[in-house]
């Protein structure tokens, strides 16, 4: 162990770390393989994580005959779109997709809007009760959903919203997370930019919308992506709040669809692909900012 890399140690008394001239940075052995030995470990591991999703895609284009024989086929003999045709022809599935889209779109929009307004007030305005309110807001971030779901159901029932999309939209209008995250971001912006506009007589609202928000795109995209992910993927609350199948979201619809069509696996998997695809595309499209947001919120939490 102590014998590793005696060369660079004596050769570089300066503090320059890992110079490019070092023969084997990272301590990997050269010449043994035409590529780094780490590939031998990482490639199979990555494949292991990919296989279930590959299998999802493959089985969605298999015929039910292929799936239902024993032992079932592991590779489709040809592309059979029967599953997709069944799912899209089933009147309810497109409906569920639309419902999910509506709920997610509303949640993303309102979280951005109300999160920005609230976050800006907490970041830049000093007002009576602001400190207490901020503490309260932070405290509610720690409240588990299971604690509030029963009374929330009762509130929604009194409002006459149970079994409507309103019941799904209302609790996700704005989260303390969105307010807090945007507040933190606004605090990191230099005040001088706003002050100039301020002194020219702009209102708070105008300063926020014309100066602050255009500078806050990273934080706004974080809120948008995470809000979309949580509302699109949620199952618990729709399960509680919705009874009638025309108001199902995609997640809720998919579980019941699976229960009712136990032998039509190709259709179930086609529906599953359609459920996963939007978040997958959103993730691949915004991968960098997505991961940055996860780690930054994670490390601070």
């Amino acid at each position: 162990m102590t014998l590793t890399r005696p060369g660079p140690r004596t050769a570089s008394p300066t503090t320059s770390p890992a110079p490019a001239t070092a023969p084997a940075p990272d301590g990997k052995r050269r010449g043994f393989l035409p590529f780094s030995g780490w590939h031998l470990l990482l490639a199979p591991l990555a494949l292991l994580f990919a296989i279930p999703l590959v299998w999802l895609l493959l089985s969605s284009v298999m015929s039910d005959a292929e799936i239902n024989r024993f032992p079932p086929a592991l590779w489709p003999s040809g592309i059979d779109l029967g599953g997709y045709r069944y799912v899209l022809g089933n009147a309810l599935f497109p409906r569920w997709f639309t419902n999910s889209l509506i709920v997610s779109a509303v949640a993303v929009t309102t979280n951005l809007l109300f999160g920005a307004l609230g976050g800006y007030a907490f970041a830049r305005m000093r007002f009576a009760g602001s400190k207490a309110l901020l503490v309260l807001m932070l405290a509610t971030m720690a409240v588990p959903f299971q604690l509030t779901m029963i009374p929330t159901f009762m509130v929604m029932k009194r409002l006459g919203l149970i079994d409507t999309l309103g019941a799904l939209v209302l609790p996700s209008l704005v989260t303390p997370f969105a307010v807090f995250l945007l507040r933190q971001f606004f605090l990191s912006l230099p005040r001088e930019l706003e002050e100039a506009a301020w002194l020219d007589g702009c209102s708070r609202m105008r300063v926020l919308f014309t100066i602050v928000l255009p500078l806050s795109r990273p934080a706004l995209s974080t809120v948008a992506v995470l809000t979309f992910l949580t509302t699109w993927n949620d199952l618990t609350w729709p399960l509680i709040a919705i009874n009638h199948d025309t108001h199902y979201t995609l997640q809720l619809g998919l579980t019941t669809f699976q229960g009712q069509h136990h032998t039509r696996w190709s259709a179930v998997m086609a529906g599953n692909v359609l459920t996963v695809l939007p978040v997958l595309l959103a993730f691949l499209g915004a991968q960098k900012s997505f991961i940055r947001s996860l780690t930054s919120t994670g490390l601070k939490g």
């Binding site: 109300f114 907490f122 807001m137 409240v143 604690l147 029963i150 009374p151 509130v155 209302l170 708070r204």
Partner: peptide, 24 residues
């Protein structure tokens, strides 16, 4: 103005978080 800005967040959070915690 500030209370106007935070009002939507406060209503949702009070109504669907603080109140339910006590109610629960």
């Amino acid at each position: 103005t500030a209370w106007g800005f935070v009002a939507p967040a406060v209503v949702v959070i009070l109504g669907l978080s603080v109140l339910p915690v006590i109610w629960s």
